[in-house]
Design a protein around this nucleic acid. Structure first.
Lengths: 334, 334
DNA sequence: TTGAAAGCGCTAACAA
DNA sequence: TTGTTAGCGCTTTCAA
């Protein structure tokens, strides 16, 4: 691979001039610039990223840490980041944290060794103190899907409470009065927040939900199935089930149907996230959107901005709203 | 961040010694080694990756180029690579090629600028010549999901012909005689290969399939639906439909059911890939596994090995076999 | 407008 | 066993 020296030699200029041309620095004569550009093209010269990062202490690289890339949700997140990265000619450095604080911290350290100073972190575990300290050291660190009041302006997150509330109100409008909730023991606050939203909506409408009608399980299809089986075993009465996410909702629908209960004729089911799967199941699932790709894109731009220009931190947080996606898993009962 | 010089100064040794300790090079006295290690820990020293890459011309970074990270399939691929990367203390550099040759080539160039000499490439478009030349220049380049005879030993791929054949034989064993195929106009050879397998199995069993019973469409759910609608419009007769992939199969099932045709009682449906979705749809889909995570893991190890030790290229290719996954979308008709 | 030169943090040949 | 030294390819200040 041609180096800057090769270009300088062939073009008969100094390496400093080549560097200026590469960076579109204004201070180069037209003739000279043209000549250098020509040589660059001829030699197929491309600057060595590592050398550049070494001296400039930044690498035009965006680091992303998520729990597990193989999960659709995080793949989509990564895609959103990738998009923003490409638009800004940044590269993408990825790590899985595997839901472990230690791996997560290690990943971030390793990112820093790469002079990667724009970082998107989907952290579930690490405590607030650690994160605050990290944020202080890395101005381009942005948290996604988590809200920490002490660093609100570095958080890009979704209003889960509003989401839970909205979809419950939708169900109430359609005449539902007896609810069941299939929630999860997930590591972060999301299940709790969504449940809070559900309860708020119920309360506002003067509706009661027996504690018996809330079941906790793992946040996947199997968990949704088991939760409904438990509900049925308990003899709970309900015409609508609000699931923590789409995966659990699909599991719930399957368990319902297996028990000879029709969806949505007998019982309506709603999810949350709007994964691809919502269009594959039958009936198609009514759910709340989680614009994670858009959010990730936004977070990436924010991270790049902050890493370039730390003083741009504004005194505000970055909150996204989920939206209702109507499909066929909810029936009117009037 | 502490540098190697800081460590050397505090420990009262030269930077060369520190470097040796960091690399576990044997040639250091025990006392000296212990002292240096202590200082490293105290200072929280971590070697700068860029400086290291600059001088050693390698970066302990694994590059991955796939069409689009947000698609489950590629997310899973990336996860397999990530796993191998972590095990070898490699970092992961990701790029989307967006199904475009130019972006793909650009991504690879950019990877090389990073001194990233182990590369996993899922390429659909780039022509053989280009790829061959690339492979010559980058000993650690491995192709995944594509077979190029001229560089067979650098290809990690799946036997799609065998897959198509196997699942068709399974259907034949269950008494099916009238087949329909929902295939795709996908950019690579996979649809063609799978179709070849289907035809082989049919031929071996002395079965005929009218040309009318093969419909081509896009490789997603919508495509599967449309294909079945077309089949129905043509008045094609069949008891089994073999879809190019799971997405099309789910679409096919939906279209069938919408038309009042029961799956699998009236018509059996099979897919390919074994995506998560196969467990969400009703009935659960019988399909062929595509062990992409395992393959990606293997490919990553191969790439790392070859980049470290180019002479390890063996005169063989790396072929994986799909396996039948029995679920509930196929009925016996006897 | 252009060039000379120092140095980013590290590795590795060579010397001691 | 340990240190000295010369770069790796690039940016950037300072001087011309």
């Amino acid at each position: 691979m041609a180096t800057i020296k090769d270009v300088a030699r062939v073009a008969g200029v100094s390496t400093a001039t080549v560097s200026r041309v590469v960076h579109n620095g204004g201070q180069v004569g037209d003739a000279c610039r043209a000549r250098v550009k020509k040589v660059i093209a001829e030699l197929g010269y491309r600057p060595n990223t590592n050398a550049r990062a070494l001296v400039s202490k930044k690498s035009d690289t965006l680091g992303v840490v998520t729990p597990r890339l193989s999960m659709t949700f995080f793949g989509t997140l990564a895609a959103g980041v990738e998009n923003a990265a490409r638009e800004n000619s940044y590269k993408l450095l990825m790590s899985n944290s595997l839901y472990e604080t230690e791996t997560e911290l290690e990943a971030i350290e390793s990112l820093r060794e790469h002079s990667c100073n724009a970082i998107i972190l989907h952290s579930e575990y690490s405590d607030e103190k650690t994160l605050q300290e990290l944020a202080r050291q890395v101005p381009g660190l942005v948290l996604i899907n988590r809200f920490l009041p002490s660093m609100a302006n570095r958080c890009v997150w979704l209003d889960n409470v509003a989401g839970g509330k909205k979809i419950t109100e939708y169900l109430i409008e359609r005449g539902h009065k007896q609810f069941a909730v299939v929630t999860s023991v997930y590591q972060n606050n999301d299940p709790q927040s969504r449940l809070t939203g559900v309860k708020e909506a119920l309360k506002n409408a003067g509706l009661k939900m027996p504690a018996n009608n809330i079941v906790e399980s793992t946040a996947n299809m199997r968990g949704g199935e088991e939760a409904v089986q438990e509900l049925l075993k308990r003899g709970a009465k309900f015409t609508a089930v609000v699931a923590y996410n789409d995966l659990m909702a699909v599991g719930a629908m399957n368990a319902l149907q297996d028990a000879g209960i029709r969806v949505p004729e007998d019982v309506s089911v709603v999810g949350f996230d709007d994964l691809y799967i919502t269009r594959a199941c039958r009936p198609k699932l009514t759910t709340m959107s989680y614009p994670i790709e858009e959010m990730a894109n936004y977070a990436a731009k924010l991270a790049i901005d902050l890493s370039t220009n730390p003083s741009n931190v504004q005194n505000r947080t970055h909150l996204f709203m989920p939206e209702l996606i109507e499909r066929n898993s909810v029936a009117d009962i009037s």
